[in-house]
């Protein structure tokens, strides 16, 4: 599904140039659950941004589903993204002004799904995440675990092929964190590819494979059994 080759990304300030990704190569197959780990500043976030097509690499190749996207413009990337990728964030990033239902509904609005179809699909996914009873609440009225479940519901409502999760349990206690990991595992078992950045060895154990980064390069890959 994903194949990146010799990916490079630099950040420049007026005087210093920082190398975030240094000729990084990796691939992820369809249906895999991959965890990316590494210390702060190793390039995890940059990698995730590029994988999520939120940012473009300076050098190298990124093939997504057989399409070279490394030099796509923003509009093309956005188009590819909204149909194929769901995001889960550490800080949930729900929109405070929208209800649970409306938050989950958003990606469907942007992909032009009809209103009746939207209601059906949002209800379906809320049901699956067991937060149907909270559908008319606002994010501030929910616990952290519930908020993250809404976020996951929002990430999967469009049935994306890939979910990118950025420390999804970082802001949760261990019990809620485990729930979230169970949900992701379920999704993966139903065929969704998942790439997750995490600091937690515990969470990483839910994945099939751990990629460890240091200074913008892959230093080790563990295959989980």
């Amino acid at each position: 599904m994903i194949k990146i080759t010799n990916l490079e990304k630099f950040y420049r300030t007026e005087e210093v140039e920082t190398i975030a990704l240094n000729k990084l190569s990796m691939h992820v197959d369809t249906g895999e659950f991959v965890a990316i780990m590494g210390p702060s500043g190793c390039g995890k976030s940059t990698l995730l941004n590029i994988l999520g097509m939120l940012d473009d690499p300076d050098e190298g190749s990124y093939v997504f589903n057989g399409i070279e996207v490394a030099h796509f413009n923003e509009r093309k990337r956005a188009d590819l993204r909204k149909h194929n990728i769901g995001f889960v964030f550490q800080s949930f990033n729900l929109i405070d002004e929208l209800t649970v239902f409306e938050n989950v509904e958003l990606p469907l609005i942007y992909t032009g799904v009809s209103a009746s179809e939207r209601v059906k699909r949002v209800e379906e996914v809320l049901d699956k995440m067991q937060i149907m009873h909270r559908r008319n609440h606002y994010p501030q009225q929910l616990s952290g675990g519930q908020q993250q479940r809404v976020a996951i519901a929002r990430a999967v409502v469009n049935k994306p092929k890939l979910i990118l999760a950025d420390e999804p349990t970082g802001n949760l206690d261990s019990s809620n964190g485990n729930d979230v990991m169970e949900l992701l595992t379920d999704l993966n078992e139903q065929g969704t590819t998942i790439i997750m950045v995490t600091h937690s060895e515990h969470d990483a154990r839910y994945s099939h494979r751990i990629i460890r980064l240091l200074d913008g390069q892959t230093v080790m890959e563990n295959i989980m059994v």
């Binding site: 939120l54 909204k82 929109i95 002004e97 958003l106 942007y110 469009n158």
Partner: peptide
């Protein structure tokens, strides 16, 4: 910024 970014990540175009 957060609201705009999240919406964009979820697929909102500039037009939206």
């Amino acid at each position: 910024a957060k609201e705009v970014s999240v919406k964009k990540i979820l697929g909102a175009g500039r037009g939206h």
